[in-house]
Write a protein that binds this DNA or RNA. Structure first.
Length: 154
DNA sequence: GCCAACGTTGGC
DNA sequence: GCCAACGTTGGC
């Protein structure tokens, strides 16, 4: 059987909430708390073995700080049913969960952050501009050709 | 703190 | 289905 080439993604997290160092320590994590349908749907399109760039957002300086890999798919996000969670969704019912997520594992932390200004150049011709001002999507696909360049820089 | 971008909500 | 109001993201 032919080994399928992985797809590449970018997922954002505020380092105050969950950082690359926390993931490095945890080794793996559920990427839960996603409450945006388009971002959720991107997770549904992931496959085991896909590579994910970890992006630190809303911090100084913002940028790609490491690499992860998808290890599990279609996991019901437990936080949607936790009343004390800030991700609690009273409209979601256990018999028909609205939010699901993937599990990722730590691969590596960048020696040097790949900064937002550098990403703006890399993604300048991409239609799903990762770095577009006001882009509220916390999960985005990354084109293979761009991903290859990023991999050389992190 | 400001604000651009844009998703969500709810009245009609 | 339209759209105004509102809320969130996230860079600066």
């Amino acid at each position: 059987m032919v080994q399928q080439e992985p797809s590449y993604w970018l997922m954002k997290s505020e380092p105050d909430a969950y950082s690359i160092d926390t993931l490095k320590n945890d080794k793996a994590t559920l990427w839960d708390g996603i409450r945006n349908y388009q971002a959720r749907n991107f997770m549904r399109n992931m496959h085991i073995g896909d590579k994910v760039f970890f992006y630190h957002s809303n911090c100084k300086p913002p940028g790609i700080v490491g690499l992860m890999e998808v290890t599990d798919l279609n996991i019901v996000d437990p936080t949607q049913f936790e009343k004390d969670s800030k991700y609690y969704d009273p409209k979601s019912k256990p018999e028909n969960p609205r939010w699901d997520c993937v599990k990722v594992k730590y691969i590596s932390k960048s020696n040097k952050l790949l900064s937002l200004p550098e990403l703006k150049i890399l993604f300048s011709e991409d239609e799903l501009l990762v770095v577009k001002k006001g882009n509220r999507l916390s999960i985005l696909p990354v084109r293979n050709d761009i991903a290859k360049i990023i991999l050389e820089k992190i």
